[in-house]
Nucleic acid binder design. Structure first.
Lengths: 265, 265
DNA sequence: AATATCTGTTACTCGGTTAATCACAAAAGT
DNA sequence: ACTTTTGTGATTAACCGAGTAACAGATATT
């Protein structure tokens, strides 16, 4: 917070570049060059605090990646491509590599993945949990029941719900505050919301999902002494699938009881 | 070629996962799990050849990344998310990270990058060179002159040309064989092609570019004894910008002489 | 119940990579 | 002619990750 504000984007850029596979020296060299536009090894060394004699290696690395050009003079001058071009370059490369990964994994995956009837699996982190929920939504054929707190009702989820609704899946939402009601109404008008006959109003909250009476998921925001409540990582969930799955059986019982009581058809 | 064909996607997947920041064990563990669907540490160890006692650490890594779920039983069972979901997860993450990099670099970049008048810069690799050329095309205001061999006339370049044409930049293309003439005609009908009054027909060939008489680039496909002619990396280019730039001056002279001779206005 | 196997955790060694320092010769400037 | 700058190569030190081994608790076997 009280740090020098100019170092903030600097360090962010360096971190990302390193995670994209550049060495520490190469990352810092490129960041230095990017802010200089162009410069000599000495220039770079001064602003990046990379030992001057190592700048040349770093430049080699960057040159081979195609994001730095070299002027053959004495002293050599180095030129960094623009921020926009650099970003595009990395984006291209990563798009290629994710494509390779995708096809490789698909060829690898067994054609039919039989589901674990007995298992109850744990997932950690809000992002990962949301991914599971969305995946379950995509597999829904008849009915989705979903209870959540507003914090956890992200755009991804609404998209998944509206897609399911388009496939004639009946959707029942609970635990929604009045504030969010409108957003839901917009995105998924077909959704039928049931009152937040909810008991955990004072608990850390979480979510609760059932799809086609075959797949269920429960999550809670665990507030350990170290984890802040807003930390997206502090959500933990368990899920299971299969008609005989214990978690499924329990939740199915609760849901049918509650829902049928709330509105008997 | 004569290798076991089943290992091919396996190794490809492992390589990509490692480059995305996973440890070797984690990568091999995930690939094993992906083909198994789910399994115990023993199962994983057998097909992945990761020491069993290290599988647990690898799983921790994967669990934190949200691509493997864990069943708390004895023995523990591990479950890999589907190939498609895994790919999407990585894609999301990488998209986020490139976005962070982009904003960081943009904040970092000096508002005005003055161009090097004297410099002649070198670039290596077909991809990087194409990037430069496209960038120059984007900066064109009046005229683009581009000579190339068909191998190097990629989609990116045609896109860049047609965009430039839409901005009322006059385009002159040379060195195009009749086969490719049609493609060009389709993509950039405004382009005016001049005959391949070209001398390097027996040389390894390359490209030659001038934009607004201010920026020039020359490339050649260097065929060292080790580099294969089809290797995209074996292209090397030099470029320069500014009215007084030596490379610019030379090429400008050649071009105006040749072009005016070919079709005097 | 006694024994044997299996499972999960921890500690530790070894090897390769990379950051960091140093020595030196060629080149440029004074 | 001398000093400073510049580029290359060799060398050391620190770190991280792969691989191995030891062990205690849990499960299964008879």
């Amino acid at each position: 917070m009280s740090d020098d504000p100019t170092t903030e984007p600097r360090d962010a850029a360096i971190e990302q570049l390193e995670r994209f596979g550049l060495s520490a020296y190469a990352a810092r060299t490129f960041v230095a060059l990017a802010s200089l536009g162009s410069g000599t090894a000495k220039d770079v060394s001064e602003v990046s605090e990379v030992p001057r004699t190592r700048v040349y290696d770093a430049i080699d690395e960057l040159h081979e990646r195609g994001i730095v050009d070299v002027q053959q003079s004495s002293p050599k001058r180095f030129w960094a491509i623009s921020a926009e071009t650099a970003s595009r370059t990395f984006e291209h490369e990563l798009r290629n590599r994710t494509a390779i990964l995708r096809t490789a994994l698909n060829e690898l995956e067994p054609v039919e993945r039989q589901e674990e009837q007995g298992g109850v699996w744990t997932v950690g982190g809000q992002a990962a949990i949301t991914t599971r929920v969305v995946e379950f939504f995509e597999s829904a054929e008849e009915e989705i029941v979903y209870m959540t707190v507003e914090d956890l009702l992200t755009e991804d989820l609404l998209d998944g719900l509206s897609e399911a609704a388009a496939r004639d899946v009946s959707i029942r939402l609970g635990g929604i505050s009045e504030d969010v009601q409108d957003r839901v109404e917009d995105a998924v008008p077909e959704a039928e919301t049931f009152d937040s006959l909810w008991v955990w109003s004072d608990t850390p909250a979480g979510r609760l999902m059932m799809v086609d009476g075959r797949k269920t998921l429960v999550s809670a925001l665990v507030n350990g002494e170290d984890a802040s409540p807003t930390d997206p990582r502090s959500e933990t969930a368990i899920w299971g699938e299969g008609a005989t799955n214990s978690l499924v059986v329990v939740l199915k019982a609760i849901f049918t009881w509650r829902l049928d009581a709330a509105e008997p058809n």
